[in-house]
């Protein structure tokens, strides 16, 4: 199975920071027939009833790249994430994760492929604590059966200890340490978003899908979240797909940007290229094009 190399215990943030290049190079040589491409979408189309949500969408994400997908409401951004993570089945097109191509990715295989995602409107488990929510991101890797756990066999206990160490580490990294034993539903919204990020990161994914990570956050929280996203990429060397509404955030944070409108890719390039693209200005900014453009130039 090609995903195997990806499910090696993820290196902890600190250790990873020492030599991210060597690690990703090793991973690449094992599982990457296409040099440096983490994910490739080719000709993805999707329709709901008569409404075409995605039309022939193609683009790729390189290793260690922050790739933003922007577009006005209803442009198909969320549909795209849901196709990538297998929640929707594309009518046509091919998705290539690492070295493996799919018409439809079974969602249960995502963690094995090194893909983790967050959701637009938080998808945490309110009945669990912060620590348990984060730990849920590791369940797919648990080897000891439930009965071994029930009898508390030594190997099962070792597995639990290992999990706990990982939780502490990731919680420390995202500033969640003091909240670990609290029920997640008692946390403020901004912190819940961090918990969701921690849950996505704990298994050491190679590709992170963030569906509107800034939605509902205050200015300060947005800044913190942006810093976390950048840190995650820099220290763990993973690729990030950032679905965002907030253009300002995206421009500063991403390496390349895809712009969707009415389900079609209308521009794809660096923040500078996209910012200047007349098509984008018309579609994304609409009537206020002139004013907003100058605003974006200034930013």
């Amino acid at each position: 199975m090609t995903g195997l190399a990806l499910t090696e215990p993820a290196l902890l943030p600190e250790r990873r920071a020492v030599a991210p290049q060597t690690v990703s190079a090793a991973t690449r040589s094992q599982v990457q027939p296409v040099q440096g491409t983490r994910l490739r979408l080719e000709g993805i189309s999707l329709a709901f009833g008569g409404i075409r949500a995605l039309k022939d969408v193609s683009f790729d994400i390189r290793e260690g790249e922050i790739r933003a997908v922007i577009g006005p409401n209803g442009a198909g951004k969320s549909s795209l994430v849901n196709v990538i993570s297998g929640l929707y089945r594309a009518d046509r097109g091919v998705i290539t994760h690492g070295g493996e191509s799919f018409a439809h990715v079974p969602p249960a295989r995502l963690p094995g492929l090194g893909v983790a995602r967050t959701f637009q409107n938080l998808a945490l488990f309110p009945g669990l604590t912060v620590a348990q929510n984060i730990a849920s991101g590791l369940v797919f890797r648990r080897k000891r059966g439930l009965f071994a756990q029930l009898l508390s066999l030594p190997k099962a206990r070792a597995e639990t200890r290992e999990t706990e160490a990982r939780i502490r580490e990731i919680a420390g990294f995202l500033g969640l340490s003091e909240h670990l034993p609290r029920l997640v539903s008692t946390l403020p919204y901004g912190l819940q978003k961090q918990v969701e990020l921690a849950r996505a990161l704990i298994a050491g994914p190679r590709l992170l899908l963030l569906d509107e990570p800034m939605a509902g956050l205050t200015g300060a929280e947005k800044t913190a979240m942006a810093a976390h996203i950048r840190a995650v990429r820099d220290r763990l060397g993973l690729s990030v797909i950032l679905i965002e509404h907030d253009i300002g955030v995206v421009m500063g944070l991403s390496d390349r940007i895809v712009v969707l409108d009415h389900g079609e890719v209308i521009a794809d390039g660096s923040p500078d290229e996209v910012r200047r693209d007349p098509e984008v200005i018309r579609a994304y900014l609409g009537q206020d094009a002139a004013g907003a453009t100058s605003g974006a130039e200034a930013a």
Binding site: S85, A108, L110, P111, L124, Q132, G137, V139
Partner: peptide, 19 residues
């Protein structure tokens, strides 16, 4: 974790690999 994850949000549970 498995039980409550399935109860509270089945879709999220599936995506993060809870069986």
């Amino acid at each position: 974790i498995n039980l409550i994850a399935v109860r509270d949000n089945e879709t999220a549970a599936r995506v993060i690999g809870v069986p």
